[in-house]
Amino acid sequence: MDPKQIIEKIREKQSNIKSVIFVGCGASKADLYPAKYFLDENAKNLRTNHFTANEFNYATPAAVDDTAIVITASLGGNTPETVQATAKAKELGAHVISLTRSVGSPIANNANYVIYHRFAESYSAKLEKMGYALELAVEILNQYEGYEYYKDMKTGFSKIFDLADKAAKSAIVDAKKFAQEYKDAPIIYVMSSGATHEVAYSTSICLMMEMQWINSGTFHSGEFFHGPFEIVDRDVPFILLMNDGRTRKIDSRALTFLQRFKAKTTVVDALDYGLSSVVPKTVVDYFNPMLITAVFRVYAEELSYARQHALTKRRYMWKLEY
């Protein structure tokens, strides 16, 4: 069942949806953020929330009932906190949609509706979870309130995956340069804005801290001048994930400051990879995170090769009870 059909089924049962709540952990939580951002920007009546799963479990919002759609995500389908959140939302009467790659997994068994996505097959496959979440958000808005740029979003979805694969392949040379320059960095800061804000977050906590054991911090580009810019100095390492669209000026302002004080700065810019040449400008903001995710995965892979530290290497995760 595709996103449009799922929301049609929910609408047949409940014509009065008040809340859309996104729940996940780590990278899966971040993958849900563009969908939440889209609804925040465009919905006039729907209330949206975005939770790490155990926050949802221990401090469950009162809005979780039959007027709520809860969208949960777990790559392997067995993240304990998210499995519990999925079951809890269903018990409270919400219409629960889960995104996972694993057929028959615990999260799939606890949901009302399941969308299975790919991951390892290609760089674009790694975007499917984020893409399906965004498609669900678009369908919710269009079916419950109407959305002026629905066709433009459909055009974007038809183009973004091919563009992402091409962009990832074209990024190898720059990624190798990045890896050599950053392989010995003791700490790396990551920032972005708009729909890409939590791509910066997952880059920091997952790709850097979890997968490379590199100290890292992340913040919104708009918050850069409200504290974080005080640590800028020559050769301090930064990654700026730069958006094509309405928040570009926020990223540009941060970049100007980094360059002014000669910080070690790597920019991954959606504009450089032709996003607005294939996606309508009316909706380009919402596709930045997908393109940038694909490109930066290449950067992370090259960094792992340069450091001789596989992205799959762990000290604690999957090895201890915690």
Rank of each mutant, 00 (worst) to 15 (best):
P280L: 06
A164S: 15
D184M: 03
E81G: 02
H117T: 14
G76D: 15
T247L: 07
S74L: 03
V267A: 01
N288F: 02
T155W: 07
S304M: 08
N45M: 15
H226D: 12
S105F: 11
T196E: 03
A94M: 03
A310K: 12
G156V: 11
V114L: 02
L39A: 07
I231A: 08
L163F: 00
K183R: 11
F238P: 04
M242E: 04
K126Q: 15
R11Q: 09
E210F: 09
L92R: 15
I292H: 03
R101I: 11
G217S: 06
F161L: 09
T256Q: 13
P228T: 06
D184E: 14
Y305Q: 07
Y33P: 02
I250V: 12
T203N: 06
Y305F: 14
P186L: 00
R297L: 05
A87N: 09
A179E: 00
D152H: 14
S216N: 01
A27Y: 08
E41W: 04
V232I: 09
K29P: 02
A300H: 00
K13I: 13
T203S: 10
G26I: 01
S19W: 10
A125V: 09
P280R: 00
A85Y: 05
R260C: 04
S19L: 06
N243P: 01
A59Y: 11
S192I: 00
M290F: 11
K29D: 13
I7G: 06
Y273T: 04
A168V: 01
S19D: 12
A171L: 13
F161R: 10
A87E: 08
K36G: 08
D65G: 15
L141C: 13
L258Q: 06
E321K: 14
Y322H: 08
R11K: 15
S304Q: 07
Y182A: 05
T86F: 10
A108K: 00
E210V: 00
A168G: 01
L207C: 12
W213N: 10
K13Q: 15
K4I: 06
P280V: 11
M242K: 14
E8D: 14
V96P: 02
M208R: 01
Q14R: 13
V83Y: 05
Q308D: 15
T79C: 01
H197N: 08
A108N: 04
N45F: 12
N57E: 13
G93M: 10
L127C: 13
F22K: 05
T265K: 03
Q180D: 10
K183C: 05
V20E: 06
M242F: 04
A120S: 14
I6C: 07
R260F: 08
L127M: 14
